[in-house]
Design a protein around this nucleic acid. Structure first.
Lengths: 158, 158
DNA sequence: GCCTTATATATAGCCAGCTAACTATTAGGT
DNA sequence: ACCTAATAGTTAGCTGGCTATATATAAGGC
Protein backbone atom coordinates (compact mmCIF):
# COMPACT_ATOMS: atom_id res chain seq x y z
CA UNK A 1 0.00 0.00 0.00
CA UNK A 2 1.75 3.17 -1.17
CA UNK A 3 1.81 5.98 1.35
CA UNK A 4 0.24 8.49 -1.13
CA UNK A 5 -0.34 12.04 0.00
CA UNK A 6 -4.01 11.26 0.33
CA UNK A 7 -3.48 8.48 2.82
CA UNK A 8 -0.99 10.42 4.88
CA UNK A 9 -3.30 13.38 5.34
CA UNK A 10 -6.66 11.70 5.63
CA UNK A 11 -6.74 10.79 9.29
CA UNK A 12 -5.67 14.29 10.23
CA UNK A 13 -8.38 15.69 8.02
CA UNK A 14 -10.83 13.47 9.82
CA UNK A 15 -10.01 14.71 13.30
CA UNK A 16 -9.84 18.31 12.17
CA UNK A 17 -13.26 18.09 10.56
CA UNK A 18 -14.72 16.52 13.68
CA UNK A 19 -13.24 19.21 15.89
CA UNK A 20 -14.34 22.07 13.71
CA UNK A 21 -17.85 20.74 13.48
CA UNK A 22 -18.08 20.43 17.24
CA UNK A 23 -16.76 23.95 17.73
CA UNK A 24 -19.23 25.39 15.24
CA UNK A 25 -22.14 23.59 16.78
CA UNK A 26 -21.11 24.52 20.29
CA UNK A 27 -21.04 28.16 19.26
CA UNK A 28 -24.48 27.94 17.72
CA UNK A 29 -26.19 26.49 20.79
CA UNK A 30 -24.04 28.12 23.45
CA UNK A 31 -26.61 30.77 24.29
CA UNK A 32 -29.04 27.98 25.14
CA UNK A 33 -26.51 26.58 27.59
CA UNK A 34 -25.94 23.55 25.39
CA UNK A 35 -23.25 22.04 23.21
CA UNK A 36 -22.86 19.19 20.76
CA UNK A 37 -22.49 16.42 23.33
CA UNK A 38 -25.53 17.47 25.34
CA UNK A 39 -27.56 18.02 22.19
CA UNK A 40 -26.72 14.57 20.87
CA UNK A 41 -27.84 13.08 24.13
CA UNK A 42 -31.11 14.96 24.20
CA UNK A 43 -31.92 14.07 20.61
CA UNK A 44 -31.26 10.43 21.30
CA UNK A 45 -33.41 10.65 24.37
CA UNK A 46 -36.17 12.24 22.34
CA UNK A 47 -36.25 9.18 20.11
CA UNK A 48 -35.82 6.39 22.64
CA UNK A 49 -37.16 7.65 25.91
CA UNK A 50 -37.21 6.21 28.51
CA UNK A 51 -33.87 4.54 28.65
CA UNK A 52 -31.23 3.76 31.25
CA UNK A 53 -27.70 5.08 31.34
CA UNK A 54 -26.07 1.95 30.03
CA UNK A 55 -28.31 2.03 26.98
CA UNK A 56 -27.54 5.70 26.47
CA UNK A 57 -23.83 5.02 26.61
CA UNK A 58 -24.23 2.33 23.97
CA UNK A 59 -26.36 4.50 21.69
CA UNK A 60 -23.99 7.45 21.85
CA UNK A 61 -20.87 5.29 21.87
CA UNK A 62 -19.58 7.06 24.95
CA UNK A 63 -18.08 5.68 28.12
CA UNK A 64 -20.18 5.51 31.19
CA UNK A 65 -18.55 8.28 33.20
CA UNK A 66 -19.00 10.64 30.28
CA UNK A 67 -22.72 9.94 30.31
CA UNK A 68 -22.87 10.56 34.03
CA UNK A 69 -21.33 14.00 33.63
CA UNK A 70 -23.56 14.97 30.75
CA UNK A 71 -26.63 13.88 32.66
CA UNK A 72 -25.46 15.75 35.76
CA UNK A 73 -25.33 18.92 33.72
CA UNK A 74 -28.61 18.39 31.92
CA UNK A 75 -30.32 17.53 35.16
CA UNK A 76 -29.09 20.75 36.74
CA UNK A 77 -30.52 22.56 33.72
CA UNK A 78 -33.82 20.82 34.33
CA UNK A 79 -33.80 19.27 30.88
CA UNK A 80 -33.72 15.63 31.91
CA UNK A 81 -34.78 13.55 34.87
CA UNK A 82 -33.25 10.50 36.48
CA UNK A 83 -35.79 8.30 38.20
CA UNK A 84 -35.74 4.94 39.89
CA UNK A 85 -36.89 1.95 37.93
CA UNK A 86 -38.74 -0.67 39.92
CA UNK A 87 -37.58 -4.20 39.59
CA UNK A 88 -33.93 -3.11 39.59
CA UNK A 89 -32.71 -0.82 42.30
CA UNK A 90 -29.37 -0.30 40.58
CA UNK A 91 -30.75 1.20 37.41
CA UNK A 92 -32.17 4.65 36.71
CA UNK A 93 -34.49 5.64 33.94
CA UNK A 94 -33.66 8.83 32.11
CA UNK A 95 -36.45 10.92 30.64
CA UNK A 96 -36.84 14.40 29.19
CA UNK A 97 -38.62 17.03 31.24
CA UNK A 98 -41.21 19.24 29.57
CA UNK A 99 -38.66 21.99 28.87
CA UNK A 100 -36.30 19.27 27.75
CA UNK A 101 -38.78 18.03 25.20
CA UNK A 102 -39.22 21.55 23.90
CA UNK A 103 -35.47 22.02 23.55
CA UNK A 104 -35.16 18.67 21.82
CA UNK A 105 -37.72 19.71 19.23
CA UNK A 106 -35.87 22.94 18.50
CA UNK A 107 -32.57 21.11 18.32
CA UNK A 108 -34.07 18.78 15.77
CA UNK A 109 -34.75 21.73 13.46
CA UNK A 110 -31.37 23.19 14.20
CA UNK A 111 -29.37 20.10 13.33
CA UNK A 112 -31.38 19.67 10.14
CA UNK A 113 -30.46 23.22 9.15
CA UNK A 114 -26.83 22.69 10.06
CA UNK A 115 -26.75 19.44 8.13
CA UNK A 116 -28.10 21.14 5.02
CA UNK A 117 -25.52 23.88 5.34
CA UNK A 118 -22.54 21.60 5.78
CA UNK A 119 -23.56 19.01 3.19
CA UNK A 120 -25.30 21.17 0.60
CA UNK A 121 -22.62 20.78 -2.08
CA UNK A 122 -22.12 17.07 -1.61
CA UNK A 123 -23.94 14.55 -3.76
CA UNK A 124 -25.69 11.49 -2.45
CA UNK A 125 -23.13 9.30 -4.20
CA UNK A 126 -20.16 11.07 -2.65
CA UNK A 127 -21.79 10.88 0.73
CA UNK A 128 -22.40 7.18 0.31
CA UNK A 129 -18.73 6.58 -0.43
CA UNK A 130 -17.58 8.80 2.43
CA UNK A 131 -19.94 7.06 4.80
CA UNK A 132 -18.69 3.65 3.74
CA UNK A 133 -15.13 4.82 4.29
CA UNK A 134 -15.89 6.10 7.79
CA UNK A 135 -17.70 2.88 8.56
CA UNK A 136 -14.70 0.82 7.53
CA UNK A 137 -12.36 2.98 9.57
CA UNK A 138 -14.56 2.58 12.62
CA UNK A 139 -14.69 -1.16 12.05
CA UNK A 140 -10.93 -1.28 11.72
CA UNK A 141 -10.49 0.69 14.90
CA UNK A 142 -12.78 -1.60 16.81
CA UNK A 143 -10.99 -4.65 15.46
CA UNK A 144 -7.84 -3.38 17.13
CA UNK A 145 -7.11 -5.65 20.12
CA UNK A 146 -6.18 -2.76 22.39
CA UNK A 147 -2.45 -2.59 22.25
CA UNK A 148 -1.61 -4.47 19.08
CA UNK A 149 0.50 -1.64 17.76
CA UNK A 150 1.53 -0.73 21.25
CA UNK A 151 5.09 -1.99 21.27
CA UNK A 152 7.73 0.52 20.41
CA UNK A 153 7.76 1.44 16.78
CA UNK A 154 11.18 -0.06 16.19
CA UNK A 155 9.50 -3.46 16.15
CA UNK A 156 7.75 -2.48 12.96
CA UNK A 157 10.93 -2.02 10.96
CA UNK A 158 11.55 -4.98 8.70
CA UNK B 1 -32.30 18.27 -0.56
CA UNK B 2 -34.02 15.21 0.86
CA UNK B 3 -33.06 14.33 4.42
CA UNK B 4 -32.05 10.74 3.47
CA UNK B 5 -30.83 8.43 6.17
CA UNK B 6 -27.30 8.90 4.90
CA UNK B 7 -27.36 12.63 5.41
CA UNK B 8 -28.94 12.42 8.81
CA UNK B 9 -26.33 10.04 10.16
CA UNK B 10 -23.21 11.25 8.48
CA UNK B 11 -22.14 14.06 10.78
CA UNK B 12 -22.58 11.82 13.78
CA UNK B 13 -20.50 9.16 12.07
CA UNK B 14 -17.86 11.80 11.51
CA UNK B 15 -17.51 12.80 15.12
CA UNK B 16 -17.67 9.23 16.33
CA UNK B 17 -14.91 8.18 13.97
CA UNK B 18 -12.75 11.09 15.08
CA UNK B 19 -13.27 10.27 18.73
CA UNK B 20 -12.59 6.59 18.33
CA UNK B 21 -9.45 7.23 16.39
CA UNK B 22 -8.17 9.57 19.06
CA UNK B 23 -8.95 7.08 21.79
CA UNK B 24 -7.21 4.26 19.96
CA UNK B 25 -4.14 6.34 19.31
CA UNK B 26 -4.03 7.65 22.85
CA UNK B 27 -4.08 4.10 24.13
CA UNK B 28 -1.26 3.07 21.82
CA UNK B 29 1.12 5.83 22.88
CA UNK B 30 0.00 6.21 26.48
CA UNK B 31 2.91 4.24 27.89
CA UNK B 32 5.22 6.79 26.29
CA UNK B 33 3.40 9.57 28.11
CA UNK B 34 1.94 10.85 24.86
CA UNK B 35 -1.39 11.13 23.09
CA UNK B 36 -2.73 12.12 19.70
CA UNK B 37 -2.56 15.88 20.24
CA UNK B 38 1.00 15.86 21.51
CA UNK B 39 2.08 13.45 18.80
CA UNK B 40 0.58 15.63 16.07
CA UNK B 41 2.47 18.57 17.46
CA UNK B 42 5.77 16.75 17.64
CA UNK B 43 5.45 15.39 14.12
CA UNK B 44 4.70 18.83 12.80
CA UNK B 45 7.66 20.17 14.70
CA UNK B 46 9.85 17.46 13.22
CA UNK B 47 9.00 18.71 9.77
CA UNK B 48 9.08 22.47 10.27
CA UNK B 49 11.40 23.12 13.15
CA UNK B 50 12.10 25.78 14.32
CA UNK B 51 8.79 27.54 14.44
CA UNK B 52 6.97 29.88 16.78
CA UNK B 53 3.73 29.16 18.59
CA UNK B 54 1.54 31.16 16.28
CA UNK B 55 2.81 29.19 13.31
CA UNK B 56 2.23 25.96 15.20
CA UNK B 57 -1.34 26.95 15.97
CA UNK B 58 -1.96 27.64 12.30
CA UNK B 59 -0.40 24.36 11.14
CA UNK B 60 -2.35 22.26 13.61
CA UNK B 61 -5.52 24.34 13.29
CA UNK B 62 -5.71 24.73 17.05
CA UNK B 63 -6.33 27.78 19.16
CA UNK B 64 -3.47 29.46 20.85
CA UNK B 65 -4.20 28.45 24.45
CA UNK B 66 -4.41 24.84 23.36
CA UNK B 67 -0.90 25.08 21.93
CA UNK B 68 0.35 26.65 25.13
CA UNK B 69 -0.95 23.75 27.17
CA UNK B 70 0.45 21.12 24.85
CA UNK B 71 3.84 22.80 24.87
CA UNK B 72 3.77 23.13 28.65
CA UNK B 73 3.33 19.38 28.90
CA UNK B 74 5.90 18.50 26.27
CA UNK B 75 8.40 20.88 27.82
CA UNK B 76 7.94 19.23 31.20
CA UNK B 77 8.60 15.90 29.48
CA UNK B 78 11.79 17.38 28.04
CA UNK B 79 10.64 16.69 24.49
CA UNK B 80 10.54 20.28 23.27
CA UNK B 81 12.21 23.53 24.11
CA UNK B 82 10.95 27.10 24.07
CA UNK B 83 13.73 29.59 23.46
CA UNK B 84 13.86 33.32 22.90
CA UNK B 85 14.16 34.53 19.36
CA UNK B 86 16.29 37.60 18.91
CA UNK B 87 14.81 40.45 17.00
CA UNK B 88 11.41 39.89 18.63
CA UNK B 89 11.21 39.62 22.36
CA UNK B 90 7.56 38.58 22.26
CA UNK B 91 8.10 35.45 20.25
CA UNK B 92 9.51 32.10 21.26
CA UNK B 93 11.00 29.53 19.01
CA UNK B 94 9.95 25.97 19.61
CA UNK B 95 12.38 23.15 18.85
CA UNK B 96 12.63 19.45 19.56
CA UNK B 97 15.13 18.29 22.14
CA UNK B 98 17.31 15.28 21.35
CA UNK B 99 14.90 12.86 23.07
CA UNK B 100 12.11 14.72 21.33
CA UNK B 101 13.64 14.07 17.96
CA UNK B 102 14.00 10.39 18.81
CA UNK B 103 10.36 10.17 19.86
CA UNK B 104 9.26 11.99 16.71
CA UNK B 105 11.06 9.44 14.56
CA UNK B 106 9.37 6.56 16.34
CA UNK B 107 6.01 8.28 16.12
CA UNK B 108 6.48 8.62 12.40
CA UNK B 109 6.72 4.85 12.05
CA UNK B 110 3.85 4.36 14.42
CA UNK B 111 1.41 6.61 12.58
CA UNK B 112 2.38 4.98 9.31
CA UNK B 113 1.52 1.59 10.78
CA UNK B 114 -1.72 2.89 12.24
CA UNK B 115 -2.64 4.47 8.93
CA UNK B 116 -2.11 1.20 7.10
CA UNK B 117 -4.22 -0.63 9.65
CA UNK B 118 -7.14 1.76 9.55
CA UNK B 119 -7.16 2.34 5.81
CA UNK B 120 -6.07 -1.05 4.52
CA UNK B 121 -9.43 -1.99 3.00
CA UNK B 122 -10.11 1.35 1.40
CA UNK B 123 -9.22 2.05 -2.20
CA UNK B 124 -7.45 5.15 -3.41
CA UNK B 125 -10.62 6.19 -5.26
CA UNK B 126 -12.82 5.87 -2.22
CA UNK B 127 -10.30 7.79 -0.18
CA UNK B 128 -10.19 10.53 -2.76
CA UNK B 129 -13.95 10.95 -2.60
CA UNK B 130 -14.01 10.86 1.20
CA UNK B 131 -11.23 13.39 1.37
CA UNK B 132 -13.06 15.70 -1.01
CA UNK B 133 -16.18 15.38 1.11
CA UNK B 134 -14.32 16.23 4.29
CA UNK B 135 -12.66 19.16 2.57
CA UNK B 136 -16.01 20.55 1.49
CA UNK B 137 -17.44 20.12 4.97
CA UNK B 138 -14.50 21.97 6.46
CA UNK B 139 -14.89 24.71 3.89
CA UNK B 140 -18.58 24.97 4.64
CA UNK B 141 -17.88 25.16 8.36
CA UNK B 142 -15.38 27.92 7.88
CA UNK B 143 -17.74 29.83 5.62
CA UNK B 144 -20.15 30.01 8.53
CA UNK B 145 -20.18 33.64 9.76
CA UNK B 146 -20.12 32.63 13.42
CA UNK B 147 -23.72 32.79 14.48
CA UNK B 148 -25.62 32.59 11.24
CA UNK B 149 -27.77 29.73 12.43
CA UNK B 150 -27.61 31.03 15.95
CA UNK B 151 -31.12 32.40 16.35
CA UNK B 152 -33.62 30.05 17.87
CA UNK B 153 -34.67 27.35 15.51
CA UNK B 154 -38.21 28.68 15.25
CA UNK B 155 -36.87 31.37 12.91
CA UNK B 156 -36.10 28.68 10.40
CA UNK B 157 -39.65 27.58 9.92
CA UNK B 158 -41.16 29.04 6.78
C1' DG C 1 8.90 60.97 19.35
C1' DC C 2 4.41 59.51 20.87
C1' DC C 3 0.31 57.21 20.92
C1' DT C 4 -2.60 53.85 18.87
C1' DT C 5 -3.05 49.43 17.02
C1' DA C 6 -1.53 44.91 16.05
C1' DT C 7 0.96 40.76 17.36
C1' DA C 8 3.00 36.84 20.54
C1' DT C 9 2.26 34.50 24.45
C1' DA C 10 0.05 33.40 28.76
C1' DT C 11 -3.71 32.76 32.34
C1' DA C 12 -8.35 31.57 34.04
C1' DG C 13 -12.28 29.01 33.69
C1' DC C 14 -15.45 26.01 31.39
C1' DC C 15 -16.73 21.35 29.57
C1' DA C 16 -16.05 16.63 27.21
C1' DG C 17 -13.79 12.41 27.04
C1' DC C 18 -11.04 8.92 28.79
C1' DT C 19 -9.15 5.25 32.40
C1' DA C 20 -9.06 3.34 36.98
C1' DA C 21 -11.15 2.28 40.93
C1' DC C 22 -15.38 2.08 44.15
C1' DT C 23 -20.32 1.00 45.73
C1' DA C 24 -24.55 -1.16 45.48
C1' DT C 25 -27.42 -4.39 43.71
C1' DT C 26 -28.73 -8.54 41.00
C1' DA C 27 -28.10 -13.03 38.90
C1' DG C 28 -26.24 -17.69 38.83
C1' DG C 29 -23.85 -21.86 40.03
C1' DT C 30 -23.41 -25.39 43.18
C1' DA D 1 -29.13 -20.68 50.99
C1' DC D 2 -24.62 -18.84 49.91
C1' DC D 3 -21.04 -17.09 47.69
C1' DT D 4 -19.12 -15.59 43.43
C1' DA D 5 -19.48 -13.05 39.34
C1' DA D 6 -21.72 -9.75 36.56
C1' DT D 7 -24.11 -5.34 36.08
C1' DA D 8 -25.66 -0.12 37.01
C1' DG D 9 -24.09 3.81 38.47
C1' DT D 10 -20.73 6.96 40.59
C1' DT D 11 -16.29 9.33 41.86
C1' DA D 12 -11.50 10.88 41.16
C1' DG D 13 -8.07 12.44 38.28
C1' DC D 14 -5.96 13.51 33.85
C1' DT D 15 -5.82 15.91 29.41
C1' DG D 16 -7.49 18.53 25.26
C1' DG D 17 -10.25 21.97 23.35
C1' DC D 18 -12.63 26.16 23.54
C1' DT D 19 -13.69 31.43 24.83
C1' DA D 20 -12.48 35.59 27.16
C1' DT D 21 -9.11 38.31 29.02
C1' DA D 22 -4.51 40.01 30.29
C1' DT D 23 0.42 41.21 29.43
C1' DA D 24 4.31 42.52 26.98
C1' DT D 25 6.47 43.92 22.92
C1' DA D 26 6.53 45.71 18.07
C1' DA D 27 4.98 48.46 14.20
C1' DG D 28 2.86 52.55 12.12
C1' DG D 29 0.58 57.04 11.58
C1' DC D 30 1.00 61.63 12.36
Amino acid sequence: MPPSTLRSGFLTELSVAGRKMRTLFDGVVRERGLNLARARLMLQLGKHEPVNQTELAAMLELEHPTIVRLLDGLEKQDLILRSAVDGDRRAKQVTLTAPGRAQAAQLDDLVAALRDTLLHDITEEELAVASRVLGRIIRNIEAQPAGSLAGDAADERR
